[in-house]
Design a binder for these strands. Structure first.
Length: 821
RNA sequence: GCCGAGGUGGCGGAAUGGUAUACGCAGAGGACUUAAAAUCCUCGGAUCGUAAGGUCGUGCGGGUUCAAGUCCCGCCCUCGGCACCA
């Protein structure tokens, strides 16, 4: 046999798999759905991070097939999005062409790594066959009141000329262009994701877990669950009414610390609060506001501030006193000053808060600046130091009849009192806002709505879907959707009355496309429904989902929302789409920095395949370290994996004999240990240690004079999920098995024999007072008494215990003898 | 600040409370070779010692235990996410 030439055998088997499909054993155990987060087909091609993700699921998929599962393992393209459109703006090349070209390249690269996808299920979100159903999803949500339009203050990116979702704003900047995000008032479409935070029921009475409670029953990384929980940000508190004195107006605030209310010395409104505008309006006779001009000036200043400035300057707090305005403290009737300050968020709670400087850090800072009264009403344990600022729970004082209660008790009693007096109630607030999905861009799925002067907003009838993207459009962004300038697109007849009407010209956020794609894979060619009930019942939910941690809140939360909404209205019978989720750790460049073109540290998988072969690349990426941990690339290290494969290759020529190698019991024992270790490690996705176990086995086989054929076969099967090309080649070289030439992937996965795992002798460490002093080779089956005697009679041990009384001897079979003097 | 994950040789990393540093890379020495590459063998925590061997070693300080990288308490540092959410 010739020497190992990966390039040659890899192309050979890739061609065979292309022609015949990937060998799949008969399924005996039912389905198992293994899904990768589908990639955006970027012009830069496949990243080594993709290879890590896809190789891991490929190994797992092959392993599950060996176990007898019918594995669904599809791949598709999250193909809408800004990069293709930006490229089009720069070059004039249509996004569709560029996208198709990129997909072609991605697919070539994926195939060059030997990934066993179900290509017959491939899908592309930018194809009309797919986005027809994305539009269907929109209409579905619209019908059930879960998609609505409202004028909203939105995040606007000047560079991208589009609105962004809250989730796409990072530190006040656009997550793509890095430009500062400004606020604009626009009519926008929203999805009512907030409807699903708490558990609900379908009309037929099925229980649907909430976005919060559902997290408890799925196997996801704790960090991801924590991030989602935090993003949803549920907080229980109370709404409290402060009456504006000498008027009918009232000011409601939200607080989680009702127990501190006797320490409230002022009240603050956000600049956006409606009452502020009302007080400034001269027509309102109620307005006794005396410093209107100053207040107006302050509002102008804050309006100019970006969200970044408003939040980043969190040390310096600004505000303005409303002269002549007072509110009454609901418990004491005391008159309190009112401020407007932009440290209060207009979009959370009621847009107004009570100021309790003694027990809230922010209020404390504000009160210090504006010389407001600090009035402590909560104290901690006597052991805790007295401070002017105490933000924890404690015991109340100076709080009339509530004094002496703990914070927790007080909150309950106080809210009961408020309810009785009709001055407040218990309230739950969330950080999560409804999902803004309108985008003023071309390369996305058009929103299927028509505006008619007579009928108003009319949904496109489902039979008319898809609403196709026009191809004759100038997609230079101007701030409105490029679709507005396509006459053919936006001029339509009203589906209800037939009068002249116009189409909605915005497209949907690409996250809408990816919120339901995992369902389509069950039945990707269906033209009647997004997927048949039968197919959904067979394959869904996704058993194992893998992708980058950057989708912790965006995609994963949206997908869960879609699943719950579809279940609520009878389209699905499960409420969580992804039962098990894992993230691959980011692969850094060789310099330890994140890979980026500007740093010039990007590794192109094509070059690695060329130099070392796809099997070596796969093994290397899996051997780098724990799958979910961040790790730096090191091209030098790949040679180690290549050497390992060379050894396996050479073993086939060395001495694989048909003789029973009963002589070599230690090797036999090692083989069975390896079968156990690899099987368990692959099941637990610990690929790095599985590979190291295979290396140990191969090193021993290499040293042995003879290796039995069955041992070698077992090795090849264990290695096959990792290095499919080479093992298939070597397997074929072994000749027909059972009279027929079959793929290694149709062979049975090796089973270990518990009896053979036990080696004939084990090495025990003998400790004297906690330190290892001797090693004992003990035959398996030696009795405890014998082992103890052996340990105590050991010369070194004797020397150590000489003249001392032995107090205790502890024997842990197979591990240690511990002698205490 | 809050939440989450971590801190082990020159490097990536391994270790159900039981011989710390498996496996791999890099390095050193040797074999083969005219030579190099490739391959194979041997050695690689620190320190004292010619050696046998001793002592110290998993971020820091305590504790539990016959025995701690692993468990408990208190810190320090790194990375990731969120961050004026009242």
């Amino acid at each position: 046999m010739k020497s190992y030439n990966p390039q040659k055998i890899e192309t050979k088997w890739q061609r065979i798999w292309e022609k015949d499909g990937h060998p799949k054993p008969k399924d005996k155990k039912g389905k198992y759905y293994i899904l990768d987060m589908f990639p955006y087909p970027s012009g830069d091609g496949l990243h080594v991070g993709h290879v890590e993700n896809f190789t891991a699921t490929d190994i797992y998929a092959r392993f599950k097939r060996f176990q007898g599962y019918e594995v669904l393992h599809p791949m598709g393209w999250d193909a809408f999005g800004l990069p293709a459109e930006n490229f089009a703006i720069k070059t004039g090349i249509h996004p569709k062409l560029k996208t198709l070209e990129s997909i072609k390249n991605f697919k070539r690269q994926i195939k060059s790594v030997g990934l066993s996808y179900d290509w017959e299920r491939e899908l592309n979100t930018s194809s009309p066959e797919y986005y027809r159903w994305t539009q269907w999803m929109f209409l579905f949500l619209y019908e059930h009141g879960l998609a609505y339009k409202k004028k909203a203050k939105v995040n606007w990116c000047e560079a991208c000329h589009t609105v962004l979702a809250n989730e796409q704003v990072i530190d006040g900047r656009c997550d793509r262009s890095g430009d500062i995000v400004v606020q604009k008032d626009l009519e926008q479409w929203f999805f009512k994701i907030t409807d699903f935070v708490e558990p609900s029921k379908s009309p037929t009475g099925q229980k649907i877990s909430g976005l919060l409670s559902g997290l408890e029953k799925i196997d996801w990384p704790s960090s991801t669950k924590a991030a989602q929980k935090h993003w949803i940000g549920r907080s229980e508190g109370a709404e409290v009414v402060f009456c504006v004195t000498d008027s009918e107006e009232e000011l409601r605030v939200f607080t989680t610390r009702l127990d501190t209310i006797y320490g409230c010395t002022y009240v603050v409104m956000a600049p956006e609060h409606p009452l502020v505008a009302k007080l400034l309006n001269d027509q309102f006779s109620i307005s006794k506001l005396q410093n209107k001009e100053e207040v107006k000036k302050y509002l102008e200043v804050t309006k100019k501030k970006t969200d970044l400035e408003r939040t980043e300057l969190n040390k310096e707090k600004t505000g303005i006193y409303l002269e002549g305005i007072e509110v009454a403290h609901p418990f004491t009737g005391e008159r309190l000053p009112v401020y407007v300050a932009d440290y209060v968020l207009g979009t959370y709670g009621t847009g107004a808060v009570m100021g309790v400087p003694a027990h809230d850090e922010r209020d404390f800072v504000f009160a210090e600046k504006y010389q407001l009264l600090v009035k402590p009403v909560i104290k901690g344990l006597p052991s805790q130091k007295e401070q002017s600022l105490f933000t924890e729970d404690g015991t109340l004082f100076h709080s009339k009849e509530f004094s002496g209660l703990t914070s927790k008790e007080a909150r309950e009693k106080m809210v009961a009192w408020l309810r009785k007096e009709k001055l407040g109630k218990k309230v739950v607030n969330y950080r999560l806002r409804d999902w803004l999905i309108s985008r003023q861009r071309y390369w996305g799925a058009p929103i299927p709505i028509i505006y008619c002067d007579e009928c108003g907003m009319v949904p496109v009838p489902k039979k008319d879907l898809p609403v196709k993207l026009p191809t004759d459009v100038d997609f230079q962004p101007t701030g409105e959707s490029p679709l507005i300038r396509s006459e053919s697109f936006h001029r339509v007849k009203c589906p209800q009355c037939g009068a002249k009407a116009r189409r909605e010209s915005d497209t949907m956020d690409t996250f809408v496309c990816s919120s339901w794609y995992y369902l389509r894979f069950a039945d990707p060619q269906n033209t009647k429904v997004f997927a048949s009930k039968k197919a959904l019942q067979k394959y869904l939910p996704v058993d194992f989902y893998m992708g980058g941690a950057e989708h912790t809140v965006l995609h994963l939360l949206y997908a869960r929302f879609f699943t719950k909404a579809l279940m609520k209205h009878g389209h699905l019978d499960f409420d969580e789409p992804f039962l098990t989720l894992r993230h691959q750790g980011m692969i850094l460049g060789e310099d330890g920095n994140k890979m980026s073109k500007s740093k010039g540290n990007v590794i192109n998988p094509d070059r690695i395949v060329e130099e070392f072969g796809a099997d070596s690349l796969r093994l290397y990426e899996m051997f780098m370290g724990p799958l979910d941990e961040m790790k730096a690339w090191n091209t030098k290290s790949i040679i180690g994996l290549r050497r390992f494969l060379d050894k396996v290759w050479k073993l086939s020529q060395k001495g694989v004999s048909n003789q029973r190698s009963a002589k070599n019991a230690p090797l036999e024992s090692l083989l069975h240990q390896t079968i156990k270790k690899v099987t368990e490690d692959v099941a637990a996705l610990k690929f790095n240690t599985a590979i190291s176990a295979l290396m140990i086995l191969v090193n021993e086989m290499d040293k042995a004079d003879h290796v039995s054929r069955s041992t070698y076969q077992s090795l090849l099967i264990l290695l096959s999920p990792f290095a499919p090309h080479m093992t298939e080649e070597l397997w074929a070289g072994l000749g027909p098995v059972g009279g027929r030439k079959k793929s290694i992937f149709l062979a049975p996965w090796p089973q270990y024999d518990g009896k053979k795992i036990v080696a004939e002798t084990v090495t025990l460490a003998v400790q004297v007072n906690g330190k290892v002093r001797a090693l004992l080779a003990v035959a398996t089956g030696t009795s405890e008494a014998e082992v103890r005697a052996m340990a105590l009679s050991n010369a070194v041990v004797q020397d150590r215990v000489k003249g001392k009384e032995i107090k205790k001897v502890i024997y842990i079979p197979g591990k240690i003898v511990s002698i205490v003097t």
